[in-house]
Design a protein around this nucleic acid. Sequence first.
DNA 1: AATTTACTTGACTGTTTAGTCAACAAGCAA
DNA 2: TTGCTTGTTGACTAAACAGTCAAGTAAATT
Lengths: 173, 173
Amino acid sequence: MKKHTREALLDSAFNTFYKHGFQGANIATILNDVGINKGSMYHFFKSKKDLGLTVVEERIARNLVNKYTSVKSVKELFDVLCSAPKTLIYGCPLNKMSQEMIYIDSDFQKILSTTYAKFETLIQEVLEREEVTNSALKAKQIIATYEGALMIYHLNQNADCFVSVLRALEKEL
Amino acid sequence: MKKHTREALLDSAFNTFYKHGFQGANIATILNDVGINKGSMYHFFKSKKDLGLTVVEERIARNLVNKYTSVKSVKELFDVLCSAPKTLIYGCPLNKMSQEMIYIDSDFQKILSTTYAKFETLIQEVLEREEVTNSALKAKQIIATYEGALMIYHLNQNADCFVSVLRALEKEL
DNA sequence: AATTTACTTGACTGTTTAGTCAACAAGCAA
DNA sequence: TTGCTTGTTGACTAAACAGTCAAGTAAATT
């Protein structure tokens, strides 16, 4: 039960922040969900903010890296991107937290910007692997379209446009 | 001073919600900013939520409509979109509020979805005016790219990619 | 077995916050 | 002037919430 509490806390905190936002999230909800008490959480994390920053590092950033480092081709990349609406039920966690936090807290701003940069680099590397020209700009185009289309999907509650927009982009590369 | 208080309240509320999010916003800050007292606000709005929904209607949606109904050509549309980073200092207000609220409160979900639909229709109409084929999908493509690029701009604090991504999209129409 | 370290408990504190209310003032119509 | 509607005041309430702490238990170290 040593590592378990900390990891369970991060899992539950990720889910809660993902749905309610960082500011809207209630620590009591997380504690109740994990089935532990206050002091136990404050043993591992010195504040709600500390918990939030660790969620970005050890959940959001880590999931992103795991997902995209295994991607080898452009086709594979688009397949992964197109499968997003099934899993990202409240939108893109990185995007959502960025929109909320970057102009509110500079520590969040730093870690979220860094995480985004990693994401962009991973996409760029996939493009370079197949010698796509102008990979830096193309990576940004792909991410921009992906993030925007995901938002439209959630606002419309309709995945049709999400996949068609991404497939149209794929053809233009 | 009859209409003034209500309008000043909506202006300040819009700015505060835009920066801090709806949940993170503090009513006392808004009241202090406008220079009035609690009861005065609750004379015009029955709750914070009521204020929030009215901000969406009378500020976010109205600004959007005013901005895009005057746009007549595709070139003009992209000029307006490309000028966004200078004015939208905390990102796209509609996108930001949507990411925060659509899975938290169904009244916000409804009004934000409706507002988004209006936005999409306006863009589509500009495309149709110049007989762009497949205007429904193209409108979604433009908005997706625009929203995503705006996010990247804010996370990177660098506008270069924003304009190049949008200009690249313009050429593909 | 003894002692230190790691983890847990849950009541408690202090603050922040949305929302209420009764009394008061201004604008206006008769 | 009188009365009515609209808007304003600011103290008050009640709840929610992040964070603390002293005392306890479990686990590892010697």
